[in-house]
């Protein structure tokens, strides 16, 4: 799984994909995950970090982050390596 590295992420939660020309808006946690991914953190590490920081059950976070990855993929922001 690879994040499109040249994504432009603004502090206010705007994401611009220069490869496709699409713009996105994300909530705070969404932006945070994208920034961590840009730093090449693994998904497992990201989950651990979020679990420490936010008041959320492990199962819930697991499910939500997995779903977020699907959203990123559907929007062509990440590619799965074959």
């Amino acid at each position: 799984m690879k994040l499109n590295k040249n994504l432009a992420v603004s502090e206010t939660g705007f994401i611009f994909n220069p490869t496709s020309g699409d713009s996105f808006t994300a909530n705070e946690i969404g932006t945070e995950i994208i920034n961590l991914m840009k730093e090449s953190k693994s998904i497992a590490d990201i989950k651990t970090a979020l679990l420490d920081k936010y008041d959320v059950e492990g199962n819930q976070l697991e499910k939500d982050v997995d779903d977020f990855m699907v959203l990123l993929r559907d929007n062509n922001l990440i590619q799965y390596e074959r």
């Binding site: 909530n27 969404g30 945070e32 936010y54 939500d64 959203l71 990123l72």
Partner: peptide, 14 residues
């Protein structure tokens, strides 16, 4: 104290 959680979310601007 942990922060209030909201599920991560991204939406294409259309």
């Amino acid at each position: 104290e942990k922060l209030k959680y909201e599920r991560p979310f991204i939406k294409k601007l259309n």
